[in-house]
Write a protein that binds this DNA or RNA. Structure first.
Lengths: 345, 345
DNA sequence: CTGAAAGCGCTTACAG
DNA sequence: CTGAAAGCGCTTACAG
């Protein structure tokens, strides 16, 4: 906790400018009801003095706060880091500060962080990271969000959050899932192992739904494939790859539901001396910056993370609409070196 | 800006508990001078009601703020994302929120962001990212920092900031530079191209100094080598690689001063069909998570970024010491697949 | 140990 | 258009 021996205050500016603090306040905040001449004088004085309003006093008095809160699963994860970069860019352009919270991918922590942000009196909250399919979690999230909106807060989410009813930027996960699965199917793969993160997440459900659609066109179903759930991280990818290879040594491709997992899959394949894509093809999802530079370059689904971050904050900066707004972030299949026609085809 | 129709206030808690707001305040903040019985009752009531103090009112009244500010060059960069992750972890453990600022690698923006954070009345500021060798910039930084500390703020930096005089976590950049250069020299490389970021940064100076030391032992000097300065990013690495290869086609190794640049270097080499490490060896610095999974796996210098973030905030959480504290973050040479003995040796 | 009251630095009806 | 004054929700000397 920091004690600030008071620096420059509004009274100081007012005195220097020879006006009341009321007038000084109006001039500085751009409120109407001050003659242009006076306003200009006040602003000049403030600038000369290097005066900056105390946010706490301002927020307390006005009941309004310029802060924006950002909730991510894990900022060290490139997917979220890139989203954060977009959010910071827009925030900075609007002269707003952003407070970041980690959820550690735990839904209860997520709700707690949301509440922490509300208590920190931010004016806007951006939630990056998928919603949950679990009704109980949805209900808790919704309660926090509605409480926040009831007091004038604005919220936007990135990813699909069933039932939340707020502005959202939603990536084309279904289409991406379909595209990447079609790609493998067209290459002749049928015995495809799937490495997925927590299936309770809407993102996972959507990507899997897309895969299911593609499989259907080939007379297959997800239930026919080994689908292994693990952490949505590099280590999770390793674990999933090991289980898939051990239990289904005949797979010709492993489809990971994000790039982090795909990197783990590649790692295990490398350890075991399995050639990629010679013996097994591997795909990712997201297209984080390094995906194209991996060993081998990863075939994946591109999502514009930074742009998604930008758009989410821009939505939240808009006044609340009667109906929640929704922006779709398009996907693009990036075919690179980690996939090839099935062996012996 | 958000208008909050006042939620639960301290008076509400006080009324429910049948005490004055003074007593309620003391009980909740853990201040001395309240009987344990009363304090307990107040806390119970507050918990039942779900009361959380208004940070703005609290900060305004007490002059103390629990917020921590984090200044990074670019949060989308894995180096900073991992540092941020460590900072968030510790902050969260101490119940503090962190506000993140982007500098876009511009020193003037950095100073401006520092000021913004001071104006936002955070209690602690962590500056991640190297200091500058330029005296003018140092002076500006120092002025902001001292102003902040004068009013009770605490600051810690990650990286060497000459003259700043604050607690610091400094990575072993000199040692790392020496280690990676020695590695290449031992492999027989003599015509080594160096891809560096802005040379006005202390980090760059230190890494180059280490390289110079290693070269010296072999009777060489940095001045004998093509050293190309570009942006400290993947694209900068590409640009540097192109210039090195065009102007010095006889290089047998390219030493990049961070992993991002190294990835760019690998990319250009790939485009031109130059085998790594068959024809040209490549090295990085930092060892971001994916470095070991690149094509080929990158030989680099490992730095414990997340731990550096943790330590920096922990230092800042400590009371100010008479003399600035300094923690060294050790480096470790990671030899992987991107380096090999010089061709034809 | 407990409470009444002043004060933190602003904003904003309310008068003029 | 301008200003005096109340009030935002807390903390903290100051009395008792």
């Amino acid at each position: 906790m920091r004690k600030h021996t008071s620096g420059l205050r509004l009274v100081d500016v007012a005195e220097h400018a020879g006006v009341s603090i009321a007038t000084a306040s109006r001039a500085l905040s751009g409120a109407p009801g001050v003659s242009e001449a006076l306003a200009r004088r006040v602003r000049t004085v403030a600038a000369e003095l290097g005066y900056v309003a105390n946010v706490h006093a301002r927020s307390l008095a006005s009941g309004a706060s310029p802060g924006v809160g950002l909730v991510v699963h894990e900022i060290g994860d490139p997917y979220f880091a890139e989203i954060a970069s977009g959010v910071l860019e827009v925030a900075s352009a609007h002269g707003r500060m952003v407070q970041i919270c980690h959820t550690g991918r735990d839904p209860f922590t997520e709700v707690a962080q949301l509440r922490a942000l509300v208590n920190a009196r931010v004016g806007i909250i951006v939630v990056a990271g998928s919603g949950h399919l679990d009704r109980d979690i949805q209900t808790r999230m919704k309660a926090e969000v509605q409480g926040f909106e009831a007091v004038g807060g604005r919220v936007a989410v990135i990813g699909r959050h069933p039932q939340l009813g707020v502005d959202a930027v939603v990536p084309a996960n279904v289409e991406g899932g379909r595209a990447i699965a079609e790609h493998l199917l067209q290459l002749g793969h049928r015995r495809i192992g799937v490495a997925t993160g927590a299936r309770g997440l809407a993102t996972m459900a959507d990507r899997l739904a897309g895969i299911e659609q593609a499989l259907g066109a080939y007379g297959l179903a997800l239930a026919d494939l080994p689908v292994v759930e693990a952490e949505f991280t590099l280590d999770g990818g390793k674990e999933a790859a090991r289980r898939i290879l051990d239990e289904h040594p005949d797979v010709t491709a492993i489809l990971a539901l994000n790039d982090d997992m795909a990197v783990g899959v590649l790692s295990v394949l490398g350890e075991r001396g399995v050639a990629v894509p010679g013996e097994v093809s591997v795909t990712g999802f997201d297209d984080v910056t390094v995906a194209g530079h991996l060993s081998p370059a990863l075939t994946t689904v591109h999502l514009p993370m930074k742009e998604m971050g930008r758009q989410a904050l821009e939505l939240a900066l808009l006044p609340r609409a009667a109906r929640p707004r929704r922006r779709t972030a398009e996907q693009e299949l990036m075919v690179r070196a980690s996939t090839a026609a099935v062996r012996g085809r």
